[in-house]
């Protein structure tokens, strides 16, 4: 009897310990983690590695982050984004600013689990896992003091690592002058518009905002609390440069032109009357689900392929 009681006591204690170490939290806590990370103030080198269609994309950049603004220096150029504004210094410096209020996004499809404390780069950190149903969708190492996500691992639907983002040479600051580059660059100001042809939700992603885009096209911004993408619906005659030598993404719904970067996937296809361009950071299985709910690529015949080759 004593042995049975001891076994029960030990079992109960172990269960309590496990429950206390692994604390599930609601989807709203995912917003807290991401919001705190977006307002962390730091400088760091950032390495992003992702795998698309068997090909590895790598990006290394220096990041300054303060007051929600992030300045990224890569090679000789730089870009800046934050609070609805993005400025890039390419051959022709340009910027865009969105005047909008972002609606709250329902992130209930994710659950946050705190896996415990750890030391990373000699900094006390929290290990956090983001669960989507029964699978681990993301794993974060979050700096205790600044709230910055020092390591982010994103997994695809089969549990394979799909993207890894690592901050090194990390320095957190209590006060840091926000990056102010590009103050003289003319900005295109974009106002929200009523949705014209875009669905309210796509495979668990909610339509957060609709905006006009160049050439009379429409931009829908979709998010699910962790990932986001923009869907551009362009007139069929619009030419999108940057897809001159695309890779191909083949799904059950068709063949898409694919030009990925380490941070984002970029797709283009045409359904006969419209061009579609999708840009976002969503994982491959989410992307397949989203594409399944959108107009599918037309099957181009010989004449169309010839025309495409001649005139782009």
């Amino acid at each position: 009897m004593t042995a049975v009681r001891r076994t029960v006591l030990v079992g109960a204690s172990t269960l309590l310990l496990v429950v206390s170490l692994v604390t599930p939290a609601s989807g709203s806590e995912l917003n807290d983690v991401l919001a705190e990370a977006s307002y962390a103030t730091y400088t760091a080198s950032r390495l992003v590695v992702s795998v698309w269609g068997g090909q590895t994309q790598v990006s290394r950049e220096f990041v300054e982050r303060a007051n929600g603004m992030e300045m990224v220096r890569r090679d000789a150029g730089w870009s800046m984004a934050g609070n609805g504004r993005a400025v890039s210094m390419g051959e022709e410096p340009k910027g865009v600013a969105f005047v909008t209020h972002q609606r709250g996004v329902d992130s209930t499809r994710y659950t946050v689990i705190e896996r415990g404390k750890a030391l990373h780069m000699s900094r006390p950190c929290q290990i956090v896992e983001v669960m989507e149903g029964g699978i681990v969708r993301a794993s974060f190492i979050v700096d205790d003091r600044s709230g910055a996500i020092l390591v982010a691992e994103i997994y695809d639907g089969s549990g394979d690592l799909f993207r890894r983002t690592t901050l090194s040479d990390f320095r957190a600051y209590r006060t840091y002058e926000a990056p102010t580059g590009g103050s003289g660059i003319p900005l295109e100001v974009v106002m929200p518009e009523a949705a014209n042809s875009l669905p309210d939700s796509l495979a668990g992603y909610q339509l957060v905002g609709t905006f006009s885009a160049p050439g009379g096209s429409e931009q829908g911004f979709y998010a699910d609390g962790l990932f986001s993408f923009s869907l551009f619906v362009l007139d069929g005659r619009t030419v999108v440069s940057g897809f001159e030598e695309p890779g191909l993404l083949i799904t059950g719904t068709g063949v898409y032109d694919l030009v990925p970067t380490a941070q984002a996937v970029r797709l283009r296809w045409q359904d006969g009357s419209n061009h579609f361009v999708l840009v976002g950071n969503l994982p491959p299985d989410h992307l397949t689900d989203v594409l399944g709910e959108l107009p599918t690529p037309e099957v181009r015949g010989m004449w169309a392929r010839w025309w495409q080759r001649l005139f782009g």
Binding site: N31, A35, S38, Y39, G68, E70, S79, A81, G82, N83, G84, R85, A86, S88, G90, K94, V96, A97, F98, T100, H101, Q102, R103, G104, V105, V190, G209, F211, A213, P214, G215, G216, S217, Q219, F221, A223, S228, F229, S230, F232, L234, D235, R237, T238, V239, V240, S241, G242, F243, V259, T261, A264, R266, R268, V277, V279, G280
Partner: peptide, 21 residues
């Protein structure tokens, strides 16, 4: 109309940088 994919990505980056709420 001619549009660069980088410009479209820049638009996405800008709107995605608005914090929820």
């Amino acid at each position: 109309t001619s549009i660069s994919i980088n410009d479209l990505q820049s638009r996405h980056t800008a709107i995605a940088s608005v914090p929820p709420g």
